[in-house]
Design a protein around this nucleic acid. Structure first.
Length: 273
DNA sequence: AAATGAACCTGTTTGC
DNA sequence: TGCAAACAGGTTCATT
């Protein structure tokens, strides 16, 4: 479900409604989460106060006093929802933080591709989840120059290159297609054949697309909702994603679909070269 | 080393 | 209508 704009939307919701709240009780389901995720004890969270809600790539970092960070990844179907402590549980709820205020924050994930782990702050940066991540797309470290360096010796097409978290984080299947359309570059173009000018265009396109999607509260395709239960409105602005056969918004040519590295790619064969 | 495909899960949509 | 196959916004593991 969530790419960077959706995770950022969730982060803002948590910051808005949960900052300063103190944990009264923690309840976790017995289900195991994503492969490679660790079952960490959550008992230390009791009595701690949420001091910050941060994001790195598609990971949420909920910072508590006492030097603890709750790391959350939403996977494909994960949501965080704001509830009253008395609200009934739902199917696929995996983690419930009840606050002393009478509110609760609940992590729900049908497919269980997501994860939650409690870390000591000092150990988190070296965790297998975070240590190999590339630059944030909206930060200065990601640019046409950094993209071109990363692309130089790669034999993959542009679409999978953009989705490689060592190149840039946070760009998933929707926004990879959308960014390539915005940059007027074919998703099949060999990464190594990207010129400096095109790399600048592509990096700029990624930034613009992500910023606009964040401003719209993310994209709701099927199940994405913010912690307040709101859908994202970027879907109506999608240029190519999930628009197979529909006319390109720029030139009316029917949008095409192809599969790259096992994922669906959408593009305009006329606008994108 | 880099690239590919399978695997991890459940729920919904599509196609016969 | 009913059933099975295909597909879904992500990461990680095994295999070339």
């Amino acid at each position: 479900m969530p790419e960077l704009p959706e995770v950022e939307t969730v982060r803002r919701g948590v910051a808005r409604y949960c900052l300063g709240r103190t944990v009264a009780a923690v309840a976790a389901s017995r289900a195991r989460m994503r492969l490679g995720s660790r079952r960490t004890g959550l008992a230390p969270l009791r009595g701690l106060t949420l001091t910050a809600a941060e994001r790195r790539a598609k990971f949420l970092l909920l910072r508590f006093d006492g030097g603890r960070t709750l790391l959350i990844h939403l996977g494909m179907t994960g949501t965080l929802r704001r509830a009253a402590a008395t609200d009934p549980p739902r199917r696929h709820d995996h983690l419930r933080l009840a606050f002393t205020s009478g509110e609760a924050l609940i992590f729900n994930d049908a497919r269980r591709f997501g994860l939650y782990e409690l870390w000591r702050d000092g150990e988190l940066p070296a965790s297998p989840h975070l240590k190999k991540l590339g630059p944030e797309p909206l930060g200065p470290a990601f640019s046409g120059a950094s993209l071109r360096v990363a692309a130089k010796r790669r034999r993959v097409p542009l679409k999978p290159l953009l989705m490689d978290p060592a190149v840039v984080v946070g760009v998933g299947n929707i926004y990879a297609s959308e960014s390539l359309f915005r940059a007027r570059l074919s998703p099949r173009r060999a990464a190594a054949r990207l010129t400096r000018t095109e790399a600048d265009r592509l990096a700029a396109a990624v930034k613009v697309v992500l910023r606009e999607a964040i401003a719209a509260g993310g994209t709701t395709l099927r199940d994405f909702v913010s912690p307040e239960g709101a859908e994202g409105y970027f879907r109506i602005k999608l240029a190519v994603y999930d628009r197979t056969g529909e006319p390109c918004r720029a030139c009316q040519t029917p949008i095409r679909r192809l599969v790259q590295a096992g994922r669906a790619t959408f593009y305009c064969p006329s606008c994108q070269r």
